[in-house]
Simulated scan of single mutants.
Amino acid sequence: MAQPVQVRPISSDEGNRLLRIVRRSSGSVVTWRRAQMVLLSAQGMPVPQIAEVTFSSPDRVRDVIHNFTADGFDSLYPRYAGGRPPKFTVDQRAEIRKAALSRPADHGLPFSVWSLSKLADFLVAEGVVDDISHEGLRTLLREEGVSFPSREDLEDQHRSRLRGQEEPGAGALRDRRRTPPARRR
């Protein structure tokens, strides 16, 4: 029978570092989950239980434990391999810039402001580009000098617009609240 998979013995410094990663609320969820798996293994929990607690498969838990044993903390951090960014021609860049600076209503679309996803979908539908990611579009627009408001900026604008408007009849309601009710004797 094969030995159960356990992480190599870890020092108290390594244990504290794992605890800091697990307790920290910011950072990569992938790193957090891997650190959690290693920490549970170091505490003697068997692989099937770790898989149940971390909502992953036993094979995945074994891989994480083996990788940590071989590579240490470097194995906890994901290595995302982004592909080469797409190259757009000068004409494509000009068309993208022109579309981003235009209003959606000018193209017969039923919304008033571009979002990254709507602009990307429009560019693909119009045949300007074959495919473009939201981040790729954001980067290209930044390079072209087009400022594109973030979702938070748009929400702030919306809130400030709503603050400046008053509902019909709100003045009478406000005046009624200011005057105290007549006292009865």
Rank of each mutant, 00 (worst) to 15 (best):
M1A: 10
P4K: 14
V5F: 00
R8C: 13
I10G: 00
S11A: 08
S12R: 13
S12I: 15
G15E: 14
L18G: 00
I21R: 08
R23Q: 08
S25I: 09
G27K: 03
T31P: 01
R34T: 14
R34P: 03
A35F: 02
V38W: 03
V38H: 00
L39P: 03
L39F: 15
L39C: 04
L40D: 02
Q43Y: 07
M45Q: 04
M45H: 09
P46S: 07
V47H: 08
E52T: 13
V61T: 10
D63M: 11
V64A: 14
F68H: 08
F68N: 10
F68L: 07
T69G: 15
T69A: 15
A70P: 00
L76F: 07
P78T: 08
Y80K: 08
Y80S: 04
A81M: 12
T89N: 02
D91W: 00
I96Y: 04
I96L: 06
R97Y: 03
L101G: 10
A105R: 13
A105I: 07
G108Y: 10
L109F: 13
L109M: 15
P110L: 13
F111V: 09
S112T: 13
D121E: 14
D121T: 14
L123G: 03
V124I: 15
D131W: 00
I132N: 00
S133V: 01
L137H: 02
L137A: 07
T139F: 06
E143G: 10
E144H: 03
P149K: 02
R151H: 04
E152F: 07
D156I: 14
H158V: 10
L162P: 01
G164I: 01
Q165K: 02
G171I: 09
R183W: 01
R185W: 03
R185P: 12
R185F: 07
